[in-house]
């Protein structure tokens, strides 16, 4: 996969930062406004995918990136489980125990555990989709060599 022209590269660099910030916004405001972990995670992944599509393969060392995304994916899945299990120790229920302080509804820091779950699932979805995309691009290169 070759890179595109200079105009596309620069526009992609500018846009990818904006898409990334918008994804963070969607994830962190998931419990207040429409959105949440899944949609924000896909946005985070797409900000990286735009960069790779525009810059071509050589822009970053994709192989190292793939290992990093796998680590992030497994780590966030593990943290979700640990947070669920922590509810088991704080009270009685696995995953359903919303034990952190609820706060004022509508504020950013409210709703107990839900924002933390949202952030973790956002990281997980972003890492998963980016892993799939990188796998599709890297392994084809390995075969053609």
């Amino acid at each position: 996969m070759k890179g595109m022209s200079v105009i596309v590269k620069k526009t992609a660099q500018l846009l990818s930062a904006m898409i990334f910030v918008f994804g963070m916004y969607i994830i962190t405001h998931g419990h207040v406004l429409p959105g949440g972990g899944f949609s924000g995670g896909v946005l985070l992944a797409s900000s990286f995918i735009v960069l790779i599509l525009a810059q071509g393969k050589e822009y970053i060392k994709l192989k190292k990136q793939r290992e990093a995304t796998s680590v992030f994916e497994s780590l966030s899945a593990l943290l979700i489980l640990l947070l669920g299990i922590s509810g088991l120790f704080a009270g009685s229920l696995f995953l359903f125990n919303n034990y952190l302080p609820k706060g004022q509804p509508g504020e950013l820091l409210s709703a107990g555990n839900i924002p933390i779950y949202s952030i973790l699932i956002g990281i997980k979805v972003a890492a998963t989709l980016f892993t799939i995309f990188l796998a599709l691009t890297i392994y084809k290169e390995e075969v053609s060599k």
Binding site: G30, H31, V32, P105, A111, S118, I121
Partner: peptide, 22 residues
């Protein structure tokens, strides 16, 4: 009231139906 989340789709997803989301 129960979850403190104004977007209660998220409240249902991560509180009442958290196992489904997992």
């Amino acid at each position: 009231e129960a979850t403190g989340a104004t977007n209660f789709v998220k409240g249902v997803l991560w509180d009442f139906r958290a196992l489904d989301t997992m």
